[in-house]
């Protein structure tokens, strides 16, 4: 909170120009560090429990390869388009930024739709959260990731509205940048889910 807050540093990318922005971005990185621990704990829980299937189905019997592959494709692509959005922002092009954010958003919504479909399918097979420790930990781990993506979708919608209202300013640029960090992070988590949950589940 100094006078420095309002001194602009023109050599930096838009989102790094004020001290306040730099603090926010660092704070968000640390928050992502905490999120890493959170997901690491969920992964550990899953790995401890995933062979404890009780009287319920095993991972191999259950998982839907097709849906999972589509989800993966959608989310990985959305991370790429999110990167393009930041690229456009760095070049100061609001229209390009908005367009790529919108694409990212749609891909994200597609991901969630397929994930919900996948979950509904499992529940119809009789595999619910209550069935076994394996399924409890599966639904909570993958569901926590899904909840994060849903939150990210809502968040991105509000940032798009602010971009439309206020244009590309130091503040909106920071918000876009931070939501993009969040989005890439969720992508990384998904890669771990894909390998440690689905791939491992299909072979073990």
């Amino acid at each position: 909170m100094g006078e420095a807050v309002h001194r602009y540093d023109e050599t930096m990318p838009l989102e790094y120009r004020t001290e306040e922005n730099r603090l926010n971005i660092l704070g968000f990185w640390i928050f992502l560090g905490a999120e890493v621990v959170l997901f690491a704990t969920l992964f550990a829980t899953y790995l401890v429990l995933f062979q404890r299937t009780g009287s319920g189905p095993t991972a191999q019997e259950l998982f839907q390869v097709k849906d999972v592959l589509i989800e993966t494709l959608l989310l990985l692509t959305s991370s790429f388009t999110c990167g393009l959005a930041i690229f456009e922002m760095r070049r100061g092009r609001l229209a390009g930024l908005l367009a790529w954010l919108l694409v990212t958003l749609l891909l994200g919504i597609g991901f969630i739709t397929f994930e919900v479909r996948e979950f509904i399918h499992y529940v119809h097979e009789g595999a619910t959260m209550q069935t076994s420790a394996f399924l409890s930990s599966f639904f909570v781990l993958v569901g926590t990731h899904g909840a994060h993506v849903s939150l990210g979708i809502g968040w991105m919608i509000f940032i798009i509205i602010q971009l439309l209202q206020r244009g590309l300013t130091v503040k909106t640029a920071r918000k876009v940048f931070i939501v993009s960090l969040y989005w890439h992070f969720l992508d990384v988590v998904w890669i771990f889910i894909f390998t440690l949950v689905y791939l491992l589940g299909m072979v073990v």
Partner: peptide, 21 residues
Amino acid sequence: ALMTFDRLFDTQFFTMANGGM
């Protein structure tokens, strides 16, 4: 959170049946 799920939604994280630990 896992404790809350076990207590409110009857999941099996820490229970004694169905694989809980």
